Amino acid sequence: MSPEYAVDGNFSVKSDVFSFGVLVLEIVSGRKNRGFYDPEHDLNLLGHAWKLWDEGKAMGLLDASMEDRFSATEAARCIHVGLLCVQQRTEDRPTMSSVVMMLDGEGPLLSEPKQPGFFTERCLSETDSSSRKRKSGVSVEVSITMVEGR
């Protein structure tokens, strides 16, 4: 969901571009934005992609299971276009027709992306972060109480 829609309820064609960018980054990484976890930090997928891009390590975003099944140039282009689509300000995002041309390798040179919208770092409490590290073996107890009227 685009920042302008989530915060102000404003929807535009650029809201769809934002959603498409999230989808591109999810496909390239093989991971979902929702529930994303990386042991190095508490960023969401968009924040993680931006951090890697900013450090010049964008190819670190790629799904490891896809190692020799893609062109590195095309993968880098997809990451670049995905980050252009998820920029905070609507006017900084390309139009969908521009996105199609960029993914095809046509059109203008790709501009440098700016920080994405919803670039967030979770603030986990001590118990949350320790339970996050132990992803397996979590036990949840549930009890059901029948409430009856008199």
Rank of each mutant, 00 (worst) to 15 (best):
L110G: 09
K135M: 10
V140A: 03
G105H: 03
G107F: 00
E106I: 07
M146F: 10
D104E: 15
R122M: 06
S129M: 10
L109G: 12
S143G: 11
S130K: 11
S143C: 14
M146D: 13
T127Q: 11
T127C: 09
M146E: 15
I144Q: 10
T127K: 08
R132L: 15
T127H: 09
S130F: 07
M102V: 02
T127D: 14
T120H: 04
T120K: 03
E112T: 15
R132K: 13
M146T: 15
G137W: 00
T145H: 09
S131F: 08
I144N: 09
R122N: 05
G105M: 06
K114C: 14
D128M: 11
V100I: 08
S136K: 07
L124F: 01
L109A: 14
S125P: 03
E112M: 15
M101T: 06
G107A: 05
I144L: 15
V147Q: 13
E126A: 07
V142W: 02
R122W: 02
G137V: 01
G117A: 06
S125R: 01
V142K: 02
S129H: 07
S139W: 01
S130L: 12
G107V: 04
E148R: 14
K135Y: 08
L103G: 04
K135V: 08
E126I: 04
E141V: 02
S130G: 07
S131R: 10
S111A: 15
K135L: 10
L110Q: 07
